[in-house]
Amino acid sequence: MSTDTATPAAASTADRPPSPAPARAPKRRSWLGLWFVLPFLAVYAVFMLWPMLLGLYYSFTDKSLTGRPVEWIGLANWAEAFGDPAAMDSLWNTARFTVLSTPPLVILGLAFALLAHRARRIGWFLRLSFFAPFVIPVSVVTMIWLWMYQPAGGLINHYLGEWGLGGDRLWAFQEDAMGSVVATTVWWTLGFNFLLYLAALQTIPAEVYEAADIDGANSLQKLWGITLPLLKRTTALVIVLQLIASLRIFDQYYLMAGGAANLATENVFIQYIYNSGFVGFRIGYASALSYILFVCIIVIALIQFRLLSRRED
């Protein structure tokens, strides 16, 4: 964020006569803008920058939630994190979740946007239906899906059993909860990607399609030749946002498979951070783990940014 923005031309007219050439507005530094961003800046500093710096500092200490005196222990937390099999397992689980959830969320988001964009009469209904789950709070979503996943009497198992597909193995709390959580997440958060794609579709000018029609292109050719290339920027954005969101998986997993009472042995990384810090009191260690995830996310986002922006050139 920089505060030395050029003063808008309109503001400069207030204290001096209108300049004949507005393009050559004086590059005078003004601190006026600062006052406008100050409220945001204050909140940002107190609740974002300061905790981040403090977290970095704590990651080099044995800071405990119990409030005992803090001691500098150098890189011990970091060394422990990289040698902690449970931490690495949970990081792997987060990676698995990301790999499993990102493709369906992006592809289905696009597919549903294409559907809703095409539909004339029931377009409003499709838009509503696809986006509606996104506004439901996570606690409600997970509760509904847990009911559906229940081994005895749950909707899914009931019909799997009825159709002779063996309705006794599908159970969110059983050994591998990942598939269940991925399915729930796709249903729940699809609407956001859908909305981004839908907005992008509406910006593609109709003339392009008309021209293609005149050239005799069929609808598949139009999709490959026009729609997808013109959605490239949106796809890049959707993938970046989706990767970041998936890497930050916690809520659904914690609510569906993470509580202590149901004996889940798996963790995702943020859950492991949460357990280390708030349940296990080790704020220092949890801070180091958080920074590891932070670096992972940044690296992945940068790589992706590089790849996609190069392709665009």
């Binding site: 939630l65 119990t66 349940v279």
Partner: peptide, 15 residues
């Protein structure tokens, strides 16, 4: 909620 969620809340509140 019984168990860990309660103790987590208690410790964070008390700290």
């Amino acid at each position: 909620t019984w168990g860990t969620p309660f103790y987590t809340k208690l410790v964070m509140g008390a700290s």
